[in-house]
Amino acid sequence: MKREFTVGHLANSRSAALPIAAAVGGMIVPALMYLLLSPAGPLARGWGVPMATDTAFAVALIVMMGRRVPLELRVFLTAAAIVDDIGAILVVAVFYAADLHIGYLAAAAGTLVVLAFLNRSHVYLVLPYILIGVVLWACIHAGGLHATLAGVLLALFIPTRPPPNLHTLMMQADAILLEEAKHGGEVLRHGPSLPALNALDFIHDRLESPADRLLRRAGARSSYFVLPIFALANAGVVLSGDVLAGRGPLVLAIMAGLVLGKPLGLIVASMVAVRTGIADKPEAYSWRQLAGAGALAGIGFTMSLFIAGQAFPSAGDFAVAKIAILAASLCAGTIGTIILWNAKSPTDA
């Protein structure tokens, strides 16, 4: 998402303001709705559960609908979902943290200074960022904050840059290869010279920024390996006759927050941002389509399960929260899909 905000569809501040405003509204309204409906006491700690959107599942449903959903709306939902994922991680780090250890947190701040120095020095090798990122993760974990915050902070400092001029790079590569070809059989026996290989390596590195390179290499492993393991490990719940006994308000609070609060907060905040001139809504999608995306944002699943695990130390409460999150995600996904399937883009009207 950092790439979209720096060199992509959301590089313009008014374009970026719409999903940011939507994400903020989509966090505040569900949390308030949960607090209004949940019982007082320990269960009130779960106000962070309906705040998060499961980016992978929400975007997957949009992708499955193909051309019925404009690319601009996909970018909007992805950006809003990731912004409120970041917000949810910050909530976990601040409000669900263990005892804080200032020494380790100071060391984490020191690693951020090093990351900022690498970024400002235009260091485009990925390895230094990874190594320092591991240290950052360890310091934040030992400091008492939730270590997922390290991923967000690390991503802020991994460099992005505008796409290269492919024509210029092709001319440079052709010139290097033509010069090497003048050596005839020597090149065939030993390969290109070391200076030529270094120059070609530089051209190859220029094709991708470190952020793009990490996304290409780690994205598939995250989506198809890490995420499914997380979902399977955390979604299971043992059903019994008394599992919901006395916990109806908890179920209602979570489901209302995700199914109703999410789209309501997202749509209202988007309208306010556009009407006040803070943000621009692309003409490629209608308000009805935006409402369908807002409904899909109610798919909490992985992040909501994650927060529920932090908020509810009781196994019984956590089990009920899982049931409510799964039911709400199913409802939100169904409602959003129906709205988007039947909505027309402004260009089709």
Rank of each mutant, 00 (worst) to 15 (best):
M1P: 02
K2N: 09
F5G: 07
F5L: 15
R14C: 05
L18D: 04
P19T: 05
A21H: 12
A23D: 10
A23Q: 09
A23K: 07
I28Q: 04
V29L: 14
V29H: 00
L36A: 14
A40L: 11
P42A: 13
A44M: 09
A44V: 11
G48R: 13
A52G: 05
T53L: 13
A60Q: 14
L61W: 02
L61M: 04
I62T: 15
M64Q: 15
G66C: 00
R67L: 10
R68T: 09
V69N: 03
L71D: 06
E72A: 15
L73A: 07
V75D: 00
V75K: 01
A80I: 13
A88F: 01
I89C: 02
I89H: 00
L90A: 15
V92Y: 11
A93N: 14
Y96E: 13
H101C: 02
G110I: 02
V113D: 01
V114G: 09
V114T: 15
A116S: 07
R120K: 14
V123K: 06
P128T: 06
Y129R: 10
I132D: 12
G133E: 08
G133R: 04
V134S: 02
G143I: 14
A147S: 00
G151F: 03
V152G: 12
I158H: 08
I158Q: 10
P163Y: 09
L166N: 06
L166A: 10
M170G: 01
D174R: 08
A175K: 11
A175C: 12
K182L: 02
L197R: 09
L200Y: 04
R206C: 03
L207A: 07
E208K: 01
L214S: 09
A220W: 12
S222T: 11
F225I: 15
L232T: 12
A233V: 07
V237S: 05
S240K: 08
S240G: 11
V243S: 06
V243E: 06
V243L: 13
L252F: 10
G261A: 11
G265Q: 00
L266P: 01
V272R: 01
V272P: 03
A273R: 15
T276D: 01
T276I: 08
P282H: 08
Q289T: 08
A293L: 07
G298K: 07
G300L: 07
F301E: 01
T302E: 04
M303F: 03
M303R: 00
M303T: 04
S304F: 02
F306I: 14
A308K: 00
G309C: 14
Q310W: 03
G316P: 00
K322M: 01
A328P: 04
L330D: 02
T337S: 13
I338W: 12
L340T: 00
L340V: 00
A343C: 11
S345Y: 05
T347Q: 11
